[in-house]
Nucleic acid binder design. Structure first.
Lengths: 192, 192
DNA sequence: ACCCGTGCCTTTACGCAGTAAGGTGCAGTC
DNA sequence: GACTGCACCTTACTGCGTAAAGGCACGGGT
């Protein structure tokens, strides 16, 4: 009989960075960021907590950075035709959906100094605006305005409803605010 | 000799909610959110950590909520004349300045379910837009768009510079994005 | 056949966090 | 002068992140 390596003998796939991050995301989505601890994460992976450090030497810092990258890296796809507004609307809607799907990670996205995670996304937006006819600087500013708006508005939404106020249609509100920015961008584009 | 109460005998003003929050804010501003602990806060107030719980029964939760209220409540002043755009610009600039002055608290503003802290601010913006001639719903949407933008953009700024990219003039970028939204709002106001 | 790294995981232990529970001393009231 | 309540302290518990060291199976050189 062929002897399996000890890890496989415990009926458990070997640890990977990817598996660790997925398990962490599962905990955060299901129980909240506050319940993500190294020990619990170890339990979820059927491993002692310290085993994680072999794959992530920087420990929890590295884990949280990994979560941010996993959720926040989300570049926009360039428009098929001329309709750059449509492309931006689609990106914004999808990005908001992703952030709300992993709402526990949003504080990390906002907080952590992990610029690389957002710079890809910002670059894709900038490129779309540049091709729409905005000057270089205006395109970069517009890209960050969009990114800031989507993140900020989603954060406001996830803070929960103010008691004593009429319930809000956050979908409609998000779209309305987005159109404000798109209107402003249109007035600065080559083809307004 | 008149015997002073023990508290005064230690040359220390009595504990108050206000003094506690101010000391906490001082720690966060000076050393970062991560270094705000109940024990350190107690030291700063020359008091044992557990004394704080007498004034804040919900402990650290209540303390953090207090910090958010202290920083994030910042209603806009209505315009002196007709120039609502100017009033909004002034509010946005001042609010951003306040957030960057207490950058350690921003993660809490974004994260914590403390809706009351922002609803006053949002209401003041909504009122300005309503008087500028926007319909009720559009005014509320616009107010949240502004709030979301300012918070989101400021959060992006405080994440720090992406290495390998040209240094950003965040003041100019903030203003540029703000003008995008103001342009969009103007096209929907009674007096565009 | 033996040895010895190397990779992956476990064991143990330390310091610091938040806070529950109960104690202490003073001020004011009756 | 006993009683009551406020403000603060003492002690102790659980859980956290992680440094340090140990074990253990594999693979390859000799």
């Amino acid at each position: 009989m062929v002897r399996q390596p000890s890890v496989a003998a415990q009926n458990r796939p070997p640890l990977t960075r990817e598996r660790i991050i997925e398990a962490a995301l599962h905990i955060v989505d299901g129980q909240g960021l506050g319940r993500l601890t190294m020990r619990r994460l170890g339990d979820a992976l059927q491993v002692e907590a310290m085993a994680i450090y072999h794959h992530m030497p920087r420990g929890k810092e590295e884990l949280l950075d990994g979560l941010v990258s996993h959720v926040a890296v989300f570049p926009a796809r360039p428009p098929a035709g001329e309709d750059w507004r449509r492309a931006l609307r689609e990106w914004a809607t999808a990005y908001r959906a992703r952030l709300t799907a992993h709402s526990g990670v949003l504080p990390l996205v906002v907080t952590r100094r992990n610029p690389a995670a957002l710079s890809d996304t910002a670059a894709s937006l900038r490129e779309i605006l540049r091709r729409a006819g905005l000057p270089e600087g205006a395109a970069a500013d517009g890209a960050h305005a969009l990114l800031g708006y989507v993140i900020g508005q989603t954060a406001l939404e996830l803070r929960g409803p103010s008691p004593g106020e009429p319930p809000t249609d956050w979908d409609a509100r998000f779209t309305a605010g987005l159109e404000l920015i798109l209107t402003g961008l249109s007035s600065r584009a080559r083809r307004p």
